[in-house]
Amino acid sequence: MRWEAFLDQVQDRGEYRTRQEAEQAARIVLALLGAHLVGDVRAELATRLPETFAVILLNPLQAAEPLSPERFVRAVAAWIEGATEQTAAWDVSAVLSVSADAAGEDLTARVLLQLPPGYNLLFGRPHHT
């Protein structure tokens, strides 16, 4: 997916006023997501994202422990100035749902298998378990 298209979709879903707000959310959410994915799944997801976001996703940092969806949202809120848990949940859902669309259903299902239960809602996929 091209950079412009990805950010346009994030901006639309997140109802951001500016592309810069959408980009900030995407950078933070994908950096945290990348710390929770490993192996081929992470690498394959990176190939479906714009190059700049792929590099962020592939950053070699790894999470010490998997974060529950609630803790993931709180971590995003901590990185976005002025964010609350509610606005961070909105940011996470905007970025992850666009990422899931770019990835396709099969890859999204494999990503969800690497994450604790409950992330399917953040990815806009309420029917995955």
Rank of each mutant, 00 (worst) to 15 (best):
L58G: 10
R74Q: 14
A43H: 00
T18E: 07
A103D: 01
G39R: 07
Y16S: 08
V95F: 00
M1C: 10
G14F: 08
I28L: 03
A35T: 11
N120H: 15
F53D: 05
L7C: 06
R27Q: 11
E65R: 13
P126W: 02
A109G: 11
Q24W: 05
I56C: 05
L61S: 13
R74A: 15
R74P: 00
Q24S: 09
Q9R: 15
A46F: 09
Q114M: 01
M1V: 08
L121S: 13
A88L: 06
D8H: 13
H127N: 11
E44R: 07
D101S: 10
T18Y: 11
R42L: 04
L57V: 01
V29W: 09
A35E: 12
Y16C: 10
D12R: 15
V92T: 09
Y119T: 00
L49G: 05
R110V: 12
N120E: 15
Q24P: 02
F72G: 10
A64W: 10
P50A: 04
L67E: 09
D101K: 10
D91K: 03
H36W: 04
V95Q: 03
T84E: 03
P117F: 05
G104W: 12
A46T: 11
L57Q: 01
L115I: 08
N120W: 01
A78H: 13
W3C: 04
V41C: 06
P117M: 02
G124T: 08
E23S: 06
R19F: 03
L37R: 01
R13W: 00
D106M: 12
L67D: 07
T52H: 12
L107K: 08
L121R: 15
Q9C: 05
P60L: 00
E81S: 08
P116E: 07
A22F: 01
E70D: 09
G124L: 07
Y16P: 08
S97W: 00
S93R: 15
W90S: 14
L61N: 13
S99T: 15
L113T: 07
L45V: 02
T129Q: 15
A88D: 10
A64F: 12
V41E: 05
A31V: 08
T129I: 14
A77F: 01
A83G: 03
L33Q: 00
P69V: 06
N59R: 14
L30P: 09
V76I: 13
G124Q: 10
E15R: 14
E81T: 10
R48M: 06
A83R: 10
I56S: 06
L112P: 05
P126F: 06
G14N: 09
G118N: 01
A54V: 09
V29S: 00
L112S: 12
A26M: 09
V41Q: 07
L30V: 11
L96M: 05
W3G: 01
T129P: 11
Q20K: 13
F123T: 04
A46K: 05
L33V: 02
V41L: 05
Q62C: 04
R19M: 06
L61I: 14
G14W: 03
R48H: 08
A102E: 13
F6N: 02
T52F: 10
A75G: 04
R42A: 09
L96P: 03
F72C: 06
R42F: 03
A26C: 08
L32V: 13
A5E: 06
L67C: 02
E85R: 13
A103E: 01
E65V: 11
A100W: 02
T87P: 06
S99L: 11
V111K: 07
Q20G: 10
Q11R: 06
